[in-house]
Simulated assay, not measured.
Amino acid sequence: MALQQHSQLRSLAAQRGMSYWGWLFVIAVFGFGLTVVSKMGPAYIDAHFVEEGLLTLSKQGGVRDMSNTEIKRELDRFFTINNVRGEPVQSVKIIRGADSTLVSINYELRQPLFHNVDVVMKFDKQLNTAKPELCCEPLVDLEQFRKRDDY
């Protein structure tokens, strides 16, 4: 009988649930995750709309025949509708080749996370009219063009 009471007490003690420190840890992890998502989420949403803008441009056709101003105007219209501002809009570069046009949106964002900790996010989306089906992954390394600074 005493053994049975002891095992019941031990069973009840094991079912008490999480301690104060356990709950504090869960809340801290949840709060950190929420902070990270709220700080970095908008940048990834903008990157999604940048990719959608390039896809829309590629489906439009005739990008090769459009002037640089027309291409930028079309992208700017799409970005305005989808509330994309700042660095992605300013980073549109157009490079014309012999048989294709490359529309590149390559930018880097630095977002303060907390106190003196920043997160750096790099985004590189490209539309090559020679291979529009491969939109929006970077196919060309633009570092060679940056050194010449002629784009």
Rank of each mutant, 00 (worst) to 15 (best):
Q4I: 13
H6S: 14
L9A: 13
R10N: 14
S11H: 13
A14T: 06
Q15E: 13
R16L: 13
S19F: 05
Y20H: 11
G22I: 00
F25L: 14
I27F: 12
V36D: 02
V37D: 01
K39E: 14
G41V: 01
P42L: 04
A43Y: 07
H48Q: 05
F49E: 09
G53R: 00
L55H: 10
L57R: 00
L57F: 04
S58N: 05
G61Y: 10
G61W: 05
G62T: 04
V63P: 01
V63W: 01
R64Q: 15
R64W: 08
R64F: 12
N68V: 07
N68S: 10
T69Q: 10
K72G: 00
N82Q: 05
E87S: 11
V89A: 14
Q90V: 10
I94K: 02
I94N: 03
D99M: 07
V103N: 01
S104F: 01
Y107Q: 00
L109M: 03
P112I: 02
P112W: 02
L113T: 01
D124H: 12
D124W: 08
K125P: 02
K125G: 10
K125A: 10
L127R: 00
N128I: 02
E137S: 11
D141C: 05
F145C: 03
K147Q: 08
D149N: 15
D149Q: 08
D150Q: 15
